[in-house]
Design a protein around this nucleic acid. Structure first.
Length: 137
RNA sequence: CAGGGUGGUCGGAUAGCCGCGCUGCGGAAAGGAAAAUCCGUUAGUGAGGAAAGUCCGGGCUUCAUGGAAACGGGAUACCGGAUAACGUCCGGCUGGAGAGAUCCAAGGGAAAGCGCCGCAGAAAACUACCGCCGGACUAUAUGUCCGGUAAGGGUGAAAAGGCGAGGCAAGAGCUCACCGCUGCCGUAGCAAUACGGCGGGUCUUAGGCAAGCCCUAUCCGAUGUAAGACCAAAUUAGGAUUUAUCAGAAGCUUGCUUCUGACGAGGCGUUUCCACCUUGUCCAAGGGUAGGUCGCAAAAACAGACCGGCAACGGUUUGUGAAGAUGAAUGGCUAUCGCUGCAAACUUUGCCUUGUUGCAAAGCAAUGGCAGGCACAGAACCCGGCUUAUAGACCACCAGCUUU
RNA sequence: GGUCCCAUCGUCUAGUGGCCUAGGACGCGGCCCUCUCAAGGCUGCAACACGGGUUCAAAUCCCGUUGGGAUCA
């Protein structure tokens, strides 16, 4: 079984935050395509701000996110994508089944959006390639 | 019986599956400035009493180090002890709260000085408005002036010891007894202090505030693991000149190096001095950005026994045991048990429309059921305290009431 | 992780321990003025972050909590 790779750099978090954002009642999911060209497995980062609560509440929130991601992402995560899970006020004490179902729904929705974006980029790239071919620089 | 006070202990338990950090072991690949990496594992280990607040004290770090004095700044404050140290702890004293066990107190100095005490009141610290008393004057009054008083009145948080008797024109510690305060002496105690005696001591210009300035005594250098040490990539590595203070000695490369002394410069809030260190033409630069390694975990620790001590604590001895992250490790699910809550059922009571068990209320010992109910809360260099948060459970001692 | 600072009406602020039942400006409500609105006038509501202590008396002095903010070779 592959280990889930974890985002650690502040730069990466900032870049992913500019990508797609999907908000459900217990969690926020952000996603953006990876920078590397080689095929790499997906990466996950976790963000829990000080607004959520004191230290032990934040730890608990992050652990529940990690446990839920362990159950969901190996089945549905796309390669070459970086995801960031953001904890909300009720993440620490909501039922775990609800958290999982919410996360699964958000992930599927995000993936479809990502695929659409990728297709659009591909078509645009094809157009630009065609133009480059017609007028070589 | 009722559940008060003080001190202490614990902080859900067991099992299974999946998952995480670190250490060990085994393996893999890549490669180089140093390094980081990945996989496996029937291996080991992995949050607290407060890990919190950062309020004190210490270790350790850098400022090269140590000592002395003055100035400045800060802290503490009944007495004695414990301790590495402390603003902590223990024992005692004094004052206050309580029926008591017990609890609370920044609790030195106001006869060194300055300052403040609004309003009210005559006066807030050189008191004298009304009043009381004596004298003088006159218009003989509920008047004016001079003097003596501090008993009484009123104001205020606070009014110049209290109370009684004597005394006096009226009064007053003016005198006396008792109480208070204070000084001295004696006894007990290491001391704070207590008890007793003596002196009346101008019986008080010693009214209050020092968490106002201040005085006295004692203590304190700054800095915080983002301290700091090392390795180190990219990028930078220079400029100005008078070619380098003086004396002595040694060496050989004969104008450089080393040593000693003098001189100059610098040296942890400021100044001065001593020892000492660095430097010797002056300025400048090392590395703040990216990254790694160390610091980084074995202790003034805890428990038992014995000895000393009222105790805090100390000594001897035996044993226990100790996480180490850096976008930051302990989580998720299931089962059983424990506790809590809920309704049902059950029990009791009430009602009338007497229901082949209807409606309502109360109770909770046993039984089965349901609950995503089970405190405060997460190590970040380490240790000793303090403060604050905290569901519930347990233990010991002491006090209260009733009975024998 | 360390070191500091601040807190007064809805907002911005003033405030020597006593005249503070806390002042001002903007804002908000009501009334007047006007044909109506604005401006103007009158008037009202509204605060010392919380808990203790010192003092006769605390927004102010001291201690402890809570919340917010700044900073780090």
């Amino acid at each position: 079984m592959d280990k889930i790779l974890v985002l650690k750099k502040r730069k990466d978090f900032l870049r992913v935050a500019k990508g797609i954002r999907m908000i459900v009642s217990t969690v926020i999911l952000q996603a953006a395509p990876s920078l590397s060209k080689d095929p790499v497995p997906f990466k996950i980062g976790y963000t829990v701000t000080k607004k959520i609560g004191k230290a032990h509440v934040r730890n608990r929130t992050k652990r529940r996110l990690r446990a839920a991601a362990q159950a969901i992402f190996p089945a549905f995560g796309l390669p070459n994508v970086e995801y960031v899970l953001v904890g909300r006020y009720n993440t620490a004490d909501c039922p775990f089944k609800v958290l999982k179902s919410d996360m699964k729904w958000a992930l599927k929705k995000t993936n479809t959006l990502l695929m659409e974006q990728k297709n659009q980029q591909n078509t645009q790239a094809n157009v630009s390639d065609n133009s480059a071919a017609t007028s070589p620089a």
